[in-house]
């Protein structure tokens, strides 16, 4: 029941700056797709368009059969697309466990007044925290966690929304090699369970060992797509990275 994400000639500009120009790409269900490109090439903007934070100037985005254009971020989450942010965003003044509960599907009349953290949701939350090795921090204020722990918490919380496609914006950014290894392991394990990934990353080592295919964008356009090796050998990609 996992779905493909299809982005068709999406464009977005800010005043005079064209962040995305006729950008088309596809993320196959079950893949770990990487999205790479030089700084300012439009990667984060693409994430923001897909997740409903920006409304594209033109183009269409589909998840399976569902058209995403015009939906609000919270609706898109409930279709099964969750994301993390380039600069980690967690609720610093909530506990770790509370951070995990926020993304749970909510607000029937019953949830209006019933206890926030209960039953199987709590179990799921604890299970995920366990999985990422941060369960012992469950009652800690999230703002007091270390940088790496905060990144894991953001990832764990994103999973609470039960996504089938997880979009990670520079998940390895700023992590030490040990943490990166752990992260690679987690992603592989989740992918083996059927989760699709779309990952923006500048750390090429991480990308090369984990992702296939790799999509390269430059100045808001896709300039290459293929296996890590093929992309690495592509002269257009080299030009993009060295060119400016």
């Amino acid at each position: 029941m996992t779905k493909d994400l299809a982005v068709h000639s999406v464009a977005k500009s800010f005043g005079g700056v064209t962040a995305l120009a006729e950008c088309s790409l596809e993320v196959r269900a079950g893949s770990i797709t990487a999205l790479i490109g030089p700084n300012g090439s439009g990667k984060t903007t693409l994430f923001n368009c897909v997740t409903g934070f920006y409304r594209p100037d033109q183009g269409e985005m589909r998840f399976g059969e569902t058209v995403l254009t015009g939906l609000r971020p919270n609706q898109i989450v409930h279709l099964g697309i969750a994301r993390t942010f380039q600069i980690t965003r967690i609720f610093k003044n909530m506990t770790v466990l509370e951070n995990m509960i926020v993304p749970v599907r909510q607000l029937g009349l019953r949830t209006l007044f019933t206890a926030g953290i209960k039953g199987h949701e709590r179990e799921r939350a604890e299970g995920l925290l366990e999985f990422f090795g941060i369960a012992f921090l469950r009652d800690e204020m999230a703002g007091r966690l270390s940088f790496g722990q905060q990144k894991l918490l953001e990832l764990a919380a994103a999973l609470m929304a039960e996504p089938t496609l997880l979009m990670l914006d520079e998940p390895a950014g700023g992590l030490n090699p040990v943490m990166i290894d752990r992260l690679t392991g987690y992603i592989r394990e989740l992918n083996a369970d059927g989760m699709t990934f779309l990952i923006i990353e500048h750390n090429m080592g991480f990308v090369m060992q984990l992702c296939e295919p790799v999509i390269v964008i430059h100045r808001g356009r896709v300039i290459a797509r293929g296996t890590p090796a093929a992309v690495r050998a592509n002269p257009a990609v080299l030009d993009a990275y060295l060119g400016d």
């Binding site: 919270n74 989450v77 409930h78 994301r83 965003r89 993304p103 749970v104 909510q106 929304a161």
Partner: peptide
Amino acid sequence: EDEGKAEASGVN
């Protein structure tokens, strides 16, 4: 705390 993040977490 962070309205954008809340929205990205699925809060209406």
